[in-house]
Write a protein that binds this DNA or RNA. Structure first.
Lengths: 257, 257
DNA sequence: CAAGTATATGAATCCCGCT
DNA sequence: GAGCGGGATTCATATACTT
């Protein structure tokens, strides 16, 4: 489906990625629990998996008991990150979100997919659930890398080393990211880039990309969530030409900070 | 060498750790064997690797044990973290520093040594060296875990999810940590704990521990740096009983923020 | 003394040239 | 070619210094 500068696919990322090319930057928040710690997670219907707003829905178990699920997640992630690499230009950049528990596996699969790992960028969430006697798990992390060499002079300035943003309220997608955060991260791409999000969810990456004048390709497996993404991107395109209405309609889709 | 509540050993951590027992918390900053994407960067001496060009800090001593390759680093780290676990009480806490490049290996060796990995705590440094077109490598990370179960009710309150501190100026050790940061991290230990730092360097962990009323065991391999640590801990003990002189003498040893 | 200006520095990183 | 060493680059922050 084509919406202005955005091309949206409803389907499986592994099936669609091989058809893509010329990507300048990948920015995505892959489903880290849909690979599955528990069989019940994988069998859950899409509403439980994706739409629930209950904070416990994405909670990971305290211990990584089942090695086979962890290995399956690693294998599947390597497949998509490799496919994304092949769809990318040399010097393209890849940014993927991870929580603290999946961070080591995330740096592994990024490299296993062929990307050159270049760093970790913490996202400090200003709200988190504290626990007595423990350091609060207040951060998520962006693992980033490049398709081969990354020249210092490519029209991109110096970028920050961490970001501080509130989780968006209200959300349409349980793992929805703040729009401002995605826009800030897209500073890693030069002007008029082709941005790819193979797990776009409700499409925050796409909205940020369109607002910054980039082209965008998004993939989402769930038809329900895909519809939400289409509506949000249509609205984003409209607001490009009618900025006056933007303020009135902001928040309708929980676009956060 | 005994200095008040602090016991300092000059020697190899792997040799000394098996003689220790009853440790409540490990807080340490091991050599990262990091520094750069290219082999030549990693093999350079620590001043070339870590100190800014033309800096007066070239006068600081080089430190050894920072040039292991990835497999040797993992193996050696597993050995010491396992030995530290055996010296620790059940429910003891272990906090180790890492940079972004060694973070995945750090979570691995902590678990391989037998600790239950419980999280990652970023330390945001207010100054960092930026690079065009890249996210600034502005953070170091504390990987933390526990010796088995960690009851929520053990006399320790809620701890932050990240810390913001500037690197201490001036320094006596290239990788010296801010005193305030170490003091904050020691909040993870209940009152009157036995704190262990098997790679104490110039002894910042020990100074913080003594100031907070803990007992301390420190190990340092280099005799030159060991002497510095002894002097700093003597001074810290004196200041416990003569707080008026503390302000006058602060900064003499570069104790930072 | 307050405010403004100059200088120093960072658990880097890249690129070039020499062996 | 591969390995190694040297030099240039980047800017927010802190400190030192001047007006």
């Amino acid at each position: 489906m084509q919406i202005g500068n955005a091309t949206l696919y409803c389907g499986d990322a592994l099936g669609i990625l091989p058809r893509l090319a010329d990507v300048d930057a990948v920015l995505t928040d892959p489903p880290y629990s849909s690979g599955g710690q528990y069989a019940s997670d994988r069998k859950a219907d899409t509403r439980t998996k994706y739409v629930s707003t209950g904070s416990s829905a994405m909670a990971l178990p305290d211990f990584l008991g089942d090695n086979r699920d962890q290995r399956a997640f690693y294998f599947w992630s390597t497949l998509w990150s490799g496919a994304a690499l092949r769809a990318s230009k040399p010097g393209a950049v890849c940014c993927v979100f991870s929580d603290w528990r999946q961070l080591p596996v995330s740096t592994d699969y990024l490299q296993a997919g062929g990307w050159t790992w270049r760093g970790i960028v913490p996202w400090v969430k200003t709200s988190a659930r504290p626990q007595m006697g423990r350091f609060t798990a207040q951060c998520e992390y962006v693992v980033w890398g490049s398709n081969g060499q990354l020249p210092t002079d490519r029209g991109v300035g110096v970028l920050p080393g961490f970001y501080e943003y509130q989780s968006p309220q209200p959300r349409v997608h349980i793992t929805q990211k703040p729009l401002g955060l995605m826009a800030d991260l897209l500073e890693v791409a030069p002007a008029d880039s082709l941005i790819l999000d193979p797990f776009m969810g409700s499409g925050t990456t796409g909205v940020a990309a369109v607002q910054k004048g980039h082209r965008f390709i998004g993939i989402e497996w769930s038809p329900v969530i895909f519809d939400v993404a289409c509506r949000r991107l249509e609205r984003a395109q409209e607001n490009l030409f009618e900025p006056r209405r933007a303020a009135q309609q902001a928040g309708l889709f929980g676009e956060g900070a």
